[in-house]
């Protein structure tokens, strides 16, 4: 079976990527207003009250 034909990709940028720090991913914003409303009800201190031991 022949290898699957790959879609062309843009040329790679100059080497050393990452040295200028992470950039914002180019991701379209979701149309998720209901979900955002749900998120507004999340306790802002939830992570503070989350306690674990190392586990494993």
């Amino acid at each position: 079976m022949p290898e699957t034909i790959e879609r062309p990709r843009p040329p790679a940028p100059p080497s050393g990527g990452g040295s200028d720090g992470p950039r914002e991913p180019k991701v379209e914003k979701p149309n998720t207003e209901d979900l955002l409303n749900r998120m507004r009800k999340v306790d802002p201190d939830q992570a503070k009250r989350y306690r674990q031991r190392t586990g494993e």
Partner: peptide
């Protein structure tokens, strides 16, 4: 992860 304590636990 526990954001506050730096603890981790896994999915092996």
């Amino acid at each position: 992860i526990d954001h506050r304590t730096g603890a981790t636990f896994g999915c092996h």
